[in-house]
Amino acid sequence: MASKKIHAIYTDDDLLLQAVKQTRAEHYHIEEVFTPFPVHGLDSAAGVAPTRIAITSFLYGLLGLSVAVTMLNFIMIEDWPQNIGGKPSFAFYTNMPAFIPVMFEMTVFFAAHLMVVTFYMRSKIWPFKKAENPDPRTTDDRFLMAIDAENHDIDILTKFLYDTGAEEIRLIENEQEH
């Protein structure tokens, strides 16, 4: 963990994106970028790996479908194979058309909810979680780039950031939260 870092604040998303690219090109380590809204292309510019959350959603959907099929087959075919209005209950496939709505809904239910829960857990957000954006303006109209300054000459780094168009540059020392 860096005990020294620099917060560079920008006023514009395009400027930030350009600054992120230049900072990466200079091999400075960007610890985090805080923005008030999603900036298109920022994740790849900052070197963030693509998210796999859509894959988890697909798997959760498969889980939901299997739960539905298992439940319907057990209840309607195995446990009480009743004659309800002449509907065939001899095998799962004989009455499957009537099961499709529930199978579909449960697939969607599992895929949606479990994915959202995964998102909350992976991004570490939940009701009583304390916000961690270092400057309250970053949810309004400021863009903050935090750079690891431990092994760099602060003056050169500051000058560099100033040249990228940063509006405010702040040195943060020993601000560790554990």
Binding site: I125, F128, A131
Partner: peptide, 10 residues
């Protein structure tokens, strides 16, 4: 939920 607006979060 403690939303901070990190690039990964977005």
């Amino acid at each position: 939920f403690g939303w901070s607006g990190r690039v990964k979060d977005w």
